[in-house]
């Protein structure tokens, strides 16, 4: 055998060979972070997958009748019930398998997608229920930090200070005045075997987490930052870059909680930790924060990030759930 053929395959070569589950021809915006997330995550297994998806950008843009961009079985039910729907699908699989109507050795990975609105807000009850019941599935929240499909409204994932159409900046407002809900921790508190936070900015980290989430038995949760050029107001070629910047500023720490043990999967050394202004500057939704009257808002954001980051560093390696 020639030497070149002996060369060990890179991870990316293996990824490139994996089946494409979301086909071209979908109608998500140019530069959309959600489709990058879906393409990368679904490379996390070679087993057959069945997908449910909450109403939202990913769903509407991928299934405009009579077209579907899904190469795998896919069900959309409604906005708030992606997790409940996959619960029923997974229960059906167990039932039919138990009865011998589906071969005993048949493997299917069940994946539920939802945006941040469909997950943090309207779908959190259905998600909590499904996690608590212990269905064998992976829930993926592609987080673009607002209701983007309906035209950029604030959600409980929208960061402090961000402009949205329902948290506009104005003479009496600096944008959203609440910090984001910590959804990964909420999910991990269900004592599920695997929960993780990732970003499309670091695909190696995301794919690794997807592989782990898809491999565990029982519920797993992935929160994936999926920047939105349209809603965040940045040029569409920068989607991945902004996903990286979120991590490098410690706005979006990459971590996982495996069997209750917290682990930072990307440590940012102090000297490499970028100021939050770099991230805020990159997006039009934070433009107003750079007006003089909002200086304290940026300080408050930086302070929160620093506190959280210190806490994460301290907790690293601890069993927290």
């Amino acid at each position: 055998m020639a030497k070149t053929e002996m060369k060990k395959k890179r991870k990316i070569d293996i990824m490139a060979e994996m089946p494409e589950r979301l086909s071209s021809g979908h109608r998500l915006c140019a530069g959309c972070g959600a489709s990058i997330a879906a393409r990368q995550i679904l490379r996390g297994t070679t087993d057959p997958v069945v997908i449910s998806c909450a109403t939202g950008c990913l769903e509407v843009a991928s299934t405009i009748y009579p077209y579907t961009a899904w190469e795998v079985p896919f069900i959309h039910n409604a906005f708030e019930n992606s997790a409940a729907t996959i619960s029923g699908v997974e229960a059906a699989f167990r039932s039919l398998k138990k009865q011998g109507k589906i071969p005993k050795n048949k493997k299917i990975k069940f994946v539920a997608f939802g945006g941040d609105g469909g997950t943090y807000d309207i779908g959190i009850q259905s998600l909590s229920g499904a996690l608590e019941r212990g269905h064998d599935f992976v829930y993926v929240c592609y987080d673009n930090e607002a209701y983007m499909n309906t035209g950029i409204q604030r959600s409980s994932a929208t960061p402090f200070g961000a402009f949205t159409n329902t948290s506009p900046a104005g003479s009496c407002s600096f944008g959203k005045s609440q910090f984001r809900k910590d959804l990964t921790m909420i999910c991990a508190a269900h004592h599920i075997p695997y929960a993780a936070q990732a970003s499309i900015g670091y695909w190696q980290d995301l794919v690794k987490k997807a592989e782990k989430a898809l491999a565990v038995e029982g519920p797993a949760f992935l929160l994936v930052l999926a920047p939105c050029p349209r809603g965040w107001r940045f040029p569409m070629e920068k989607t991945v870059e902004i996903g990286k910047l979120a991590v490098d500023t410690c706005f979006w720490p990459l971590y996982e909680i495996e069997n209750g043990v917290f682990k930072l999967t990307k440590k940012i050394p102090d000297k490499k930790k970028k100021p939050i202004t770099e991230w805020l500057k990159s997006q039009g939704r934070f433009k107003h924060l750079f007006e003089e009257c909002n200086e304290n808002v940026i300080e408050e954001i930086q302070q929160k990030i620093d506190e959280d980051w210190q806490r994460y560093l301290k907790t690293n390696g601890d069993k927290i759930f």
Partner: peptide, 8 residues
Amino acid sequence: PYTFGPLD
């Protein structure tokens, strides 16, 4: 693979 519940 079938798609259920498309945007119609």
